[in-house]
Design a protein around this nucleic acid. Structure first.
Lengths: 159, 159
DNA sequence: TCTCCTTCGGGACTCCGACGCGCATCTTGA
DNA sequence: TCAAGATGCGCGTCGGAGTCCCGAAGGAGA
């Protein structure tokens, strides 16, 4: 299935206003509400839209500190990876975890209230992860870009 | 303002179903639709809920490759930082960018279709960034955790 | 202990708009 | 040129959202 620019406009708008009504969206895009409803349903059915979710302001919860954590394991055996991954999924402060190529095995993104809080997380969550050989943390001083969707998705000029 | 566990339940649910109606949510939480509407509006007004947004399945758009890019600048002068940041914001394939402590100045998360596509991005987007001294890329082989909100937010037991 | 007051929840009601359907029309692509 | 698919309009139904009011619970003060 190919998306034309109206589909992309719908996606772009829903990325901002997930609760927009059909009529509201239709006016912005330049379609009737009927046509828009059909397109939106198709986008959902075809899996382009995974879910509609509320974006929370994490700063309101005091989570203002982002930490990048590099982790190397003692062993790269399948069993070690599985054990590590099963546990890291349970860490409540971890929001992203990637298995990486290169020297570092895993990279985690951790959210903390402040540096002291990260010390607690390091102690209670990270240091308890199995098979870890080395943990190296870097603090984010500022966030310059934070997008859920790269803008390149909306700029593909088809039709 | 303090949130009780019903507020957290509302937030947790809206994080999954941003389009749930008041009655639908009220039934899940165990509230009347009136009480729920009041709470939800308060959460929006107080800024806990920033927006409602559609989550796109980026794999459907062919963006299956995540790359972590470390960038060091030639100089850490205020002018160099500003110039770099102004340009990196325009890069359409960059979804995250952090100013970091430590040896690396910036860390970027870039989404690409595949490795060949990343080569193109490297050439057309990254290498054109100003004042860059060194670029180092690591590929994510697999994504183990990807959460918009750390689970710790919903587990704070108050009231 | 009693009472007042504030706060929160719940029920009933109304109104408005969203949603979905059918059909005629138009556009697009083969 | 023709056919298939997409569009737009009109319509009716349904459900959501918002308002008002009342009652219950909890806290403060005398």
């Amino acid at each position: 299935m190919a998306l034309d620019r109206k589909d992309l406009a719908i996606l772009a708008e829903l990325t901002t206003n997930a609760r927009a009504s059909h009529t509201e969206l239709a006016n912005k895009i330049g379609l009737s509400s009927t046509a828009l409803a059909r397109r939106q349903k198709a986008l959902e059915d075809d899996g382009y839209i995974q879910a509609y979710q509320a974006a929370l302001d994490l700063a309101q919860f005091g989570l203002t500190t982002t930490v990048l954590v590099r982790i190397a394991l003692e062993s790269q055996s399948d069993e070690a990876l599985k054990a590590f991954e099963a546990e890291v999924t349970k860490c409540p402060s971890v929001v992203r975890c990637f298995l990486m190529s290169g020297t570092d095995d895993y990279i985690l993104i951790v959210l903390a209230r402040d540096i002291q809080d990260f010390e607690r997380i390091h102690r209670t969550e990270l240091s308890r992860l199995p098979r870890v050989a080395r943990v190296q943390s870097s603090f984010a001083l500022r966030e310059i870009v934070n997008r859920a969707v790269p803008t390149v998705v909306f700029s593909e000029t088809k039709r």
